[in-house]
Amino acid sequence: MDRTQLLLVGLPLFLFFSDIFNLFSPPPSKPAAHHHHQPVSQPLIQQQQPSLEFPAQKATGIGFGNTVSIDFCSSCSYRGTAVTMKNMLENQFPGINVVLANYPPPLPKRMLSKLVPVVQFGVIGIIVGGEQIFPRLGFAAPPQWYYSMRANRFGSMASTWLLGNFLQSFLQSSGAFEVYCNGELVFSKLKENRFPGEIELKDLVARRIASSRVVDGLHGGHWS
């Protein structure tokens, strides 16, 4: 096998194993905070200064005790929209807890997305060594489509890789942007086929918070 063949085979294989490594590798951990060394006299002065944060103030706010969960499709590039909504809710409802999470696709699509790299590797392997593979599978001669792919090996391998990546991205996407307030669904992109507006989402969360307070007040009055 000459250098050109090694290059044509090695590049798709390198990209394949890179995708596999990124698929199964855990997300990077958050960098640890850097502590700068300060002179000995400075910590003593800082310890003597009274703290400006009061626990009573931190535990109050219109949104305190309420949780909003935004489950979005991370492979659809929805993270920017989710972060924007998170910042808006935290500004409008001080003290609220906003949690961002990935909304995975259904299980069949996830299983099929794991098979795509296997098919990619198999097709590239057939293009490279089909003359040795087909006889071992019981074929007297490779089929005609093999010779067509073999005639343009680089184009066939590149097309296989690009098409497989596109299919895998489609199978890993859920298209979801689901917003829950205190465990109750207040907006669903899967149902509405659109994103919520900032004012719309603020009103939906405000109504849910007010409803939770009314329910808690009724329960408190019943047991008092």
Rank of each mutant, 00 (worst) to 15 (best):
N182S: 06
Q5K: 08
N182A: 03
V123R: 09
A151K: 15
L52I: 05
T4G: 11
W223V: 11
L171M: 14
R208D: 00
I96P: 01
Q172G: 03
P105M: 03
A33M: 12
Q120E: 14
N22A: 14
H219S: 03
Y78M: 14
F54H: 09
P105W: 01
V118K: 09
Y146H: 13
W161C: 04
P43M: 12
Q46E: 15
Q144G: 11
R110P: 01
I209K: 00
K202L: 08
I62E: 07
V215C: 00
F54Y: 09
Q132Y: 15
P142Y: 13
P50R: 07
H222K: 08
P12G: 05
G175W: 11
F139D: 14
K109V: 01
W145Q: 13
A141Y: 11
V179R: 06
I62M: 04
N91R: 10
Q49R: 14
G122V: 10
V116I: 15
R208G: 00
T81E: 10
L201V: 07
F24Q: 05
I62Q: 09
N97I: 02
F154W: 12
R213D: 00
M88H: 14
R136K: 13
F170W: 10
R194L: 10
G122M: 12
T4Y: 14
W145L: 15
F134V: 10
T160Q: 03
Q144R: 13
N193K: 15
A33K: 15
H34V: 15
M88I: 04
F195R: 11
R3V: 07
S29M: 10
S113A: 15
F187M: 07
R79T: 04
E90F: 01
L15F: 13
F16D: 05
V179H: 05
P135K: 11
L23W: 10
S148H: 12
Y180C: 02
D203M: 09
S29I: 06
V83Y: 02
Q47T: 06
Y147W: 15
T67V: 14
K58V: 04
T60H: 08
R194G: 08
W161I: 05
V119Y: 06
L162F: 13
P135S: 12
A59E: 12
L89Q: 02
Y146W: 15
K202F: 05
S173K: 12
D19R: 10
Q5P: 00
Y180A: 04
F54G: 00
A82E: 07
L44Y: 11
V40N: 07
N97A: 03
L44N: 05
I20G: 03
L185W: 03
F154L: 15
F187Q: 10
